[in-house]
Amino acid sequence: MGAAELSILAKQKQTEQPLLAVRGLTKRYGRRIGCAEVSFDLFAGEVLGIVGESGSGKSTLLSCLAGHLAPDAGTVVFDTADGPRDTVRMAEAERRRLARTDWAFVHQNPRDGLRMGVSAGGNVGERLMAVGARHYGQIRAQAVDWLGRVEIAADRMDDRPSAFSGGMQQRLQIARNLVTGPRLVFMDEPTGGLDVSVQARLLDLMRGLVREMGLSAIIVTHDLAVVRLLADRLMVMQGGQVVEQGLTDQVLDDPQHAYTQLLVSSVLQV
């Protein structure tokens, strides 16, 4: 075997290390099941969609993955800068550091993810300051750049988010999350509560950002159109269990599980 082949193999091996490897993740609320025995791998640059009806455990799963909830069993191994680490067992300080550097979390309601009393620029700058930026001019320049990328005019920079429309707030939340260049973004119903034209623009924007930055993302939604547009792979959940997973188009065009068939056929075709 030649040296060139070896290096190709080594490279393949590198890329084969999943960014996020989840095994047997379980969360119970007393006797009720939040999510049970969820396992999957997420690779760099990949977007995973999680769909299912309300109460199917999507949000519980996402919270466990992002470290907001402590799971009862299972491991969530993230490929950190110092090699793969189980984020469930790591110290809270470390997990929170991860949450403001390598991870990002986009809430369904922008009010949960933004500081409503702080200007748009301050909201975007917060993560930069949280990781040690101490130069006002540079923080501001980066905030302007990011507001531009999510199509918020620079002259709205010193306005508070409460003066923004719902769509703008959501875009601001995305800018605030992506400013430190995370590698993995968790999104909980990012387009929920927005009207369809604003949704379309937001999806367009997110698709652009995900492709451009090579982000990995886990998107929880009940809107099949969102996953059709954004997700490479799809996981269907029902009653806390994963009932079907595969490539997005494959799952949506040729659903195998009865519940997936029901879900796909429930969408009104216009």
Binding site: R100, R115, V118, S119, G121, G122, G125, E126, R127, L128, M129, A130, V131, G132, R134, Y136, I139
Partner: peptide, 9 residues
């Protein structure tokens, strides 16, 4: 980091 957000504002 939040303390600096106040000064930033």
């Amino acid at each position: 980091g939040l303390m600096h957000v106040k000064l930033y504002e």
